[in-house]
Nucleic acid binder design. Structure first.
Length: 757
DNA sequence: TATATAGTGTTTTTT
DNA sequence: ACACTATATA
């Protein structure tokens, strides 16, 4: 593409960002300011105008999905050569580098990648080994500390030097033991992927230079969410050619809990004084009303780079605010609105996103969507790959692939039941420790382990022989075939089939889905390897698998929504204690944490193109307790004139920020808004002042079934059956039915759509 | 060794 | 409300 052609499609600021090809560049890109567009054009410009070879370009994105999108957009522009560009997430990039050079760090190229579950079991085994009480020392807390240390590139040795208090010392020891175990198991956790790559480069400057030569032009997206380790990695790579272009928005920094260092972006100009700074403040995404609301909310944060987004877009509708009795009503309203608008032909399902602060909130929406038969997709939550049956199958594959991964061996040694219990395992374990060999090796020579009965030894040998057979077969066998072997020859699926419960059935379905994922991987990858498949499985984010073509409502956390946009957005659970979360309100430094929550709110608002609805419940069930929920302060930071309160819901609103803390002049107003429910938790018996908003869906919610015990009913799948019992299960009626040939099933009345015959 | 049961703690957000 | 753990029992 010609220079003119590339530049004429951009605004002045974007153009600046594109032509500054040499040296450090900081692009401060507000939400919806066409930053991806700028980046894509910059890559095209580098290749077609500056003449940079595509192989010398590295672009780092936040998710695999964003990487794919960027690559295909570049592809559309330059036609060919885009395969040579490296577009990748930090984690994928590091794995690729590490696989090639793992031997230099004492690992093999088959190293496993540990997820949070694996980390937890490893730490548990360490605590057991050290005879530490898991009640006194919480493995999760320890892992949190270790993770932060790794984000900051603090090694166990350094950690021990820095932390000399009792707990700190303990954590230091555990950190050290944990790293030793990981190495023994030939495994790395997520944080290691970055930290070990940095270590590799620092120990081997010659290797670093190879990559510096390769990646002469670098771009880092979502720069505000990089942590110290990632910053170090980028700096190392950019040291030689200094062609580093970072793109970010300090107002959208929402991953501090994961080690994101906002100073990386705020201090970029200090580290690179010669940096060209470009500001993209024109928004192409949202209506004036939505953008103004976002501006007003984020204005309440201190310590940010001052900016104010503007747009030439239409004024649009006001931001809708609706309050409800409780979470059920809230979910009912959202589903009702979506359903109504889609039926009227105004929008499609995929135009909507329902956003919430915590994954736990998704359940209510899911239930209502099912009842209303709205097509939806929940992003995140319980990850497919963290389901038990999937983890079991993957543990077999990891055991086959990585001979040193004892953690996986111990997971599956008695799954399905082989009569190998805790007593046997601990004997093998101490034998392994005494001999300085791996658990698996020890199990292989079970006959020599003192104190083991002949029958126990036989069971162990049976297992190790089985693994050996699979391992031998793995060579030259397709991954999907190997996986099928595992599912059948272990008897895992047989065992599930015997259970004959709906749960077991869905587990089998999940296993089959895993097999088809393996098939997909084989089809797409030119050189499929078992390690490669396991790696893809470990690094895939839930958002990466969202089908963009599907016509479904998307449900996700505000965090997952980053980088996305939708014509219509519902921000739900806009309540004090939920959003901002009570964790942030009660933190040691609440100001900081609440500012992070406010940025999250800003991210949410700016996802909306045309329509934004804020919803809140007055009461919410939290851990089984009903809690009164005042309206979120963020809602009150939006000026009154930008808000549409709805006809029935006209609660008093303020155009300014209320004084909420003390009595003062705002006390009356405060009570009106907060519903007089400030102390939480508080049980309130209240009457519904907003009848109208409360009605939709609720009638469907809990209808007494049109049949009773003894009746014959028909089910879509199980056919005819006899109703044994109908029980009031709170939200819904629980029906027990005996289906001849299928067994006795329990199901929710509104869910199962049973018909009386 | 495997299973049923009571008791206990837990929740923010994710690559 | 729910999941996980420790304990008792077969």
């Amino acid at each position: 593409m010609e220079k003119q052609e590339i530049l004429e499609r951009l605004n002045e600021e974007q153009r600046e960002a594109v032509v500054a090809t040499e040296g450090p560049v900081l692009i401060l890109a507000g939400a919806g300011s066409g930053k991806t567009r700028a980046l894509v054009h910059r890559i095209a410009y580098l290749i077609d105008v500056t003449g940079v070879s595509p192989g010398h370009i590295l672009a780092i994105t936040f998710t695999n999905k964003a990487a794919d999108e960027m690559r295909s957009r570049v592809d559309d522009m330059i036609g060919f050569g885009s395969q040579e560009i490296t577009v990748s997430t930090f984690h994928s990039l590091c794995v690729r580098i590490l696989r090639r050079n793992a031997e230099l760090l004492g690992f093999t190229r088959y190293f496993s990648i540990y997820d949070t579950d694996d980390q937890l079991s490893l730490m548990k085994s360490i605590l057991r080994q050290k005879n530490l009480d898991p009640k006194m020392i919480r493995e999760k807390a320890v892992l949190g500390r270790i993770s932060s240390a790794k984000d900051e590139l603090v090694t166990p040795e350094k950690y021990k030097m820095l932390n000399t208090d009792y707990y700190g010392k303990r954590v230091g020891e555990l950190y050290e033991a944990y790293q030793t175990k990981l190495l023994e198991n030939n495994a790395m956790d997520f944080d290691d992927l970055i930290a070990k790559t940095v270590e590799l480069f620092e120990k081997h400057p010659d290797l670093l230079e190879v990559y510096q030569e390769r990646f002469r032009y670098m771009m880092v997206d979502e720069y505000q969410d990089t942590n110290t380790a990632q910053f170090r990695l980028v700096s190392l790579l950019a040291e030689k050619y200094r062609n580093l272009c970072v793109v970010g928005d300090d107002d959208q920094s929402i991953y501090k809990f994961r080690g994101a260092n906002i100073r990386n972006i705020l201090g970029f100009e200090k580290v690179f004084p010669d940096a060209v700074v470009v500001r993209l403040e024109r928004n192409y995404r949202s209506t004036k009303h939505i953008l103004e609301a976002a501006n007003e909310v984020i204005r309440h944060n201190h310590g940010r780079k001052d900016k104010r987004l503007w747009t030439e877009n239409a004024e649009g509708a006001k931001v809708k605010l609706r309050r409800f009795l409780n979470g059920f009503e809230e979910a009912g309203y959202v589903c009702g609105e979506i359903s109504r608008e889609v039926r009227s032909g105004k929008r499609r399902y995929r135009d909507y996103a329902v956003l919430y602060r915590t994954n736990a909130q998704s359940r209510l929406f899911e239930e209502k969507m099912l009842m209303a038969s709205l097509p939806y997709r929940i992003v995140g939550g319980i990850n497919f790959y963290s389901r038990r049956e999937i983890k079991d199958m993957l543990a077999y594959l990891k055991t086959i692939d990585n001979a040193r991964d004892d953690l996986q061996v111990m997971r599956i040694i008695n799954i399905p039941k082989r009569g190998i219990g805790a007593a046997t395992i601990s004997k093998v374990l101490s034998y392994a420790e005494a001999g300085g060999i791996s658990f698996f090796e020890a199990a292989c020579s079970a006959g020599e382990i003192p104190g083991l009965s002949a029958s126990a030894a036989k069971k162990l040998t049976g297992f190790t022989d089985f693994i050996a057979v699979l391992r031998a077969r793995a060579e030259g066998r397709k991954i999907s075939e190997l996986l099928k072997d595992v599912t059948t020859e272990t008897g895992y699926v047989d065992e599930l089939e015997k259970e004959e419960t709906e749960e077991a059935e869905s587990r089998i379905e999940n296993i089959n889905e895993l097999i088809s994922k393996a098939v997909q991987y084989e089809e797409k990858e030119p050189e499929p390897t078992l390690s490669g498949f396991l790696e893809e499985v470990a690094l895939i984010a839930d958002i990466d698998t969202v089908e963009t073509g599907d016509d479904r409502v998307l449900l996700m956390t505000l965090h997952s929504a980053k980088g996305l946009e939708f014509p219509s957005v519902f921000m739900t659970g806009m309540e004090e204690g939920l959003f901002p979360s009570s964790m942030s309100i009660n933190a040691e430094r609440p100001e900081e944490e609440i500012e992070e929550e406010r940025r999250l709110c800003y991210v949410g608002i700016t996802r909306a193109k045309e329509s934004l609805t804020l919803t809140a419940a007055r009461e919410r069930m939290i851990r089984g307790e009903v809690t009164a929920s005042p309206l979120s302060r963020f809602v009150r930071e939006i000026p009154r004139e930008l808000v549409d309160l709805g006809e029935e819901n006209a609660v008093p609103m303020s155009g300014r920020v209320l004084n909420l803390s003390g009595r003062g002049a705002d006390a009356g107003m405060r009570d009106a808004i907060l519903g007089g429910a400030r102390k939480s938790p508080v049980r309130t018996a209240y009457q519904n002042p907003y009848k109208k908003a409360a009605v939709p869906m609720s009638s469907i919610q809990k209808a007494k079934p049109a049949f009773e015990a003894g009746d014959t009913v028909r089910h879509v799948k199980f056919g005819e059956g006899t109703v044994l019992e109908i029980k009031d299960g709170g939200k819904d009626f629980l029906v027990t039915v005996d289906f001849p040939g299928w067994g006795v099933k329990k199901m929710y009345a509104s869910f199962a759509k049973l018909k009386k015959i």
